[in-house]
């Protein structure tokens, strides 16, 4: 029973990691209607930059601040140079152009940092464990990831629904022409939102750095899963992204943990051995197809548009 509890926590934690990635993506998606495959590249850059800053400054918190600022700036630069003109294009062009950006950023990192994975570690004050229940120890850092993810969700909700910027964002998403006719600089607004999305990707990347491998291509490994999250949740919806992330994190984790033993009760052990992991790999895609079959716009279709 304790194992089920622990696995549930693992599922939540993985879901929150996915949410950190998904939040920026769905924001950009929902507001500018831009499919940004290069979101994974910003995640990778966040991890590389945070690692480098941590090595240089010796302070984890300073590294976090610097990496966030840097990904924000990179996001804005990329938006200004390459993506601005893509908003009006169809999704196909966006997919291709941002696919091109992935190739570019991967090689850029190879040129700057080399192709080998780089060394990352947790600061000592974050590497301990907390005891949730007697006998259930949980890594402190993972608990922190959960907290940060939930805090980001709350802040985004506040930003979008309670601030002037959020009001403009919502207005811009539903009727761009009207908002600019009212004298709002919609261009600047988009650039800012993209920068914010980039910083969120960077945050996800820097949080992932100490527990995953910081290497080229790390963005694509997670990107496809993140797309599954926002599609399940309903594109453009922060709430959908959170729910989608938790559902995917949970289904994936519990599938990995319990599918094989479950199958073993009906199949022979060797059949369960091969079917279990195979099915676990496909589980989130099956989930997504099923969700879209019943709700073609995802669980929480964005009300705008």
């Amino acid at each position: 029973m304790l194992l089920v509890l622990e696995q549930t926590l693992n599922g939540i934690q993985f879901g929150v990691t996915l949410f950190l990635m998904a939040a920026g993506l769905t924001l950009v998606f929902g507001i500018m209607n831009l499919v940004n495959l290069a979101h994974g590249s910003l995640y990778m850059l966040g991890a590389y930059l945070a690692t480098t800053f941590f090595q240089r400054t010796g302070s984890f918190l300073a590294a976090v601040a610097l990496a966030l600022a840097a990904t924000l700036v990179i996001g804005i630069v990329v938006e200004l140079i390459a993506l601005q003109t893509l908003y009006e294009r169809d999704h196909l062009d966006q997919v291709l152009a941002t696919f091109g950006l992935i190739l570019f950023f991967n090689e850029l990192v190879a040129i700057v940092w080399g192709r080998a994975a780089i060394y990352t570690k947790l600061p000592p004050w974050l590497s301990g464990h907390i005891e949730l229940l007697p006998g259930v120890r949980y890594p402190l850092y993972r608990a922190l990831v959960i907290l940060v993810g939930l805090a980001v969700a709350a802040l985004l909700w506040l930003l979008v629904s309670r601030t002037r910027l959020g009001m403009l964002i919502r207005a811009g998403a539903s009727n761009r022409t009207m908002v600019s006719a009212l004298g709002v600089n919609i261009r600047l607004l988009y650039t800012l939102v993209f920068g914010l999305g980039a910083a969120l990707a960077g945050l996800a990347g820097l949080m992932a750095g100490p527990i995953y491998a910081v290497q080229i291509g790390m963005g694509e490994e997670i990107l496809i899963q993140v797309f599954v999250v926002i599609v399940i949740g309903g594109i453009g919806s922060i709430r959908g992204a959170l729910v989608g992330a938790l559902v995917v994190g949970m289904v994936d984790t519990l599938g990995r943990a319990f599918l094989r033993p479950l199958l073993a009760t009906v199949l022979s052990p060797s059949a369960a051995d091969s079917a279990g992991p195979a099915l676990a790999s496909m589980l989130i895609y099956i989930l997504m197809a099923a969700v879209l079959f019943f709700r073609p716009q995802g669980l929480f279709p964005a009300s705008a548009r």
Partner: peptide, 9 residues
């Protein structure tokens, strides 16, 4: 990416 579930097991 994440082996936490298997490590719990």
């Amino acid at each position: 990416l994440d082996f936490q579930a298997e490590l719990s097991q």
